[in-house]
Simulated scan of single mutants.
Amino acid sequence: MSAGATAVSRAVLVERPGVHRLIGREVPVPGPGEVRVRVAAAGVCMSDRELYDGHRAPEYVRYPVVPGHEWSGTVDAVGAGVDPALLGRPCVAEGFRSCGRCERCRYGETSLCTAGYAETGFTEPGAFADHLLVPAGLLHPLPDGVDLRAAALLEPAAVVAAAVRAARPRPGERIAVVGAGTLGLLAVQWLAASSPGELAVVDPRAQRADKALGFGASRTLTPREADGEAGRFDLVVETAGAPPTAASSCLLARRGGRVVLTGMFTAGATGIDPVHLSLSQLEVRSVFGASSAAWADAVRAFSLGLLDPAPLVTHEFPLERFGEALALVGGGDPGTGKVLLRP
């Protein structure tokens, strides 16, 4: 770079649904209480596809926006009031920009913050970029030498951690995971550590279901086969977000069983039968994002080697090929796992 030249930081900007371009901008400077992260890897998920296609609810996106809410990187600058010891630390950070002051935040339920929705990559600039600014209070430092490629999946891992917290798995239970996508396979890996008596995975895609066996599942079922197992499972963790899976997951649970819904459902999904719900005395919980506590669980499990998301990654692209990466996500190829952008 010649003397006096301004350093450039690239970013994928989605100007409006269906329209994006790679932009160059000055390297952002962290303000008070912020850190700047040099992004190592950023995952592309269906929420990013929904954002790009214009299918995300208006209150949960703000165009133009730089997407990217699943990421890892290294702190390369700190703002005023931030511990300089963070410089050079590998890290991830929570996506929800919780206020830390409302009643729900004070209870530790930061994903239920009442100050209004704000999230990295949806309403705030995200990680499909060379650099990212985040509040230092949301940062989760990682051990030196960590696999930052795998660490980019700690955001979905934190969602799974939130689901497991809600699920309260106990040794010897019969557990079903509905869906063998990123969330489903991470859930299998996590739940396998609870010593279940049975850990079944329900997915119509044989290739994805078979992968679950390598993550600790004891058997796999197609949705049709699962219909014959109604009322059998102590715990059902739904991760697919498909139109019928909230209702079908409740049917899989035994009377008095527990169901946790983590999939992102859209309008028109099949409703849960209230008669079945009341007569079966089911406990049903839903998860949207992850609290600070769930993030801490995921980071600890990853740092200790108890959770390994690396085998989920199947494709990596530079920022310039964002369009190709996005096309793979939701494209229907069962061989496509987690797609990463590598700035």
Rank of each mutant, 00 (worst) to 15 (best):
43 G>E: 05
271 G>E: 13
332 G>C: 13
302 F>Y: 15
60 Y>P: 00
254 R>N: 02
299 V>N: 05
22 L>T: 10
64 P>Q: 07
77 A>K: 02
324 E>F: 12
212 A>Q: 02
33 G>K: 05
252 L>P: 02
81 G>Y: 06
28 P>G: 03
281 Q>F: 00
218 S>V: 10
135 P>R: 15
247 A>R: 12
271 G>F: 08
121 G>C: 07
149 R>H: 05
38 R>T: 02
299 V>L: 09
75 V>E: 00
246 A>S: 11
315 H>W: 09
59 E>I: 13
175 I>C: 04
298 A>D: 12
201 V>T: 01
272 I>L: 14
156 P>L: 04
23 I>Y: 01
278 S>R: 14
298 A>R: 02
177 V>K: 01
152 A>H: 06
71 W>C: 03
340 L>F: 02
170 R>D: 05
137 G>N: 05
27 V>C: 09
153 L>C: 05
327 A>Y: 04
285 R>V: 04
196 P>A: 09
257 G>P: 10
188 V>R: 00
324 E>G: 07
182 T>P: 04
202 V>S: 01
140 H>T: 05
32 P>H: 13
211 K>Y: 13
296 A>V: 03
114 T>H: 12
27 V>D: 07
38 R>W: 02
260 V>T: 06
102 C>A: 07
218 S>Q: 11
73 G>T: 13
130 D>N: 02
194 S>N: 07
196 P>R: 12
164 V>N: 01
117 Y>E: 04
283 E>C: 14
141 P>I: 08
